[in-house]
Design a binder for these strands. Structure first.
Length: 103
DNA sequence: TCCTTGACGGAGA
DNA sequence: ATCTCCGCCAAGG
């Protein structure tokens, strides 16, 4: 079990998140068979190449927020990509009850 | 080496 | 709602 195998499992799960849905870092870790390794998910996503096909923008934190500094370029990018899928933020938060992916 | 920092999270207070 | 502690572990100083 090494970092490389973590990444592969994580990529596979992230790729399954349907358009219009979101999943949390912890949820991805859990589904990838890596419980309590939410940080590994964030780390893996941070290493993705710029033009990746993976829907990384559908991954948010457990509080329903985007895990980037508000107003940063990355934050705005993720936010707009989510809005294009009909996912809106209210007070900087996404309604998990409504948009959370249920595999 | 040791220490700190992360796209984090859950339990408890 | 907010905060602290603790688990987890790769990377960089």
């Amino acid at each position: 079990m090494n970092e490389i195998s973590y990444q592969e499992k994580i990529w596979q799960v992230v790729a399954l998140i349907p358009e219009g849905n979101v999943a949390t870092y912890g949820q991805i870790a859990e589904l990838a068979g890596l419980p309590r390794m939410a940080r590994a998910v964030g780390r893996t996503l941070s290493l993705l190449p710029k033009g990746t096909q993976l829907p990384w923008h559908r991954v948010i934190n457990a509080k329903g927020q985007i895990s980037f500094p508000v107003g940063s370029e990355a934050y705005e990018c993720q936010k707009s990509r989510l809005e294009e899928e009909g996912i809106t933020l209210l007070n900087g938060k996404i309604n998990l009850k409504q948009h959370r992916w249920q595999p």
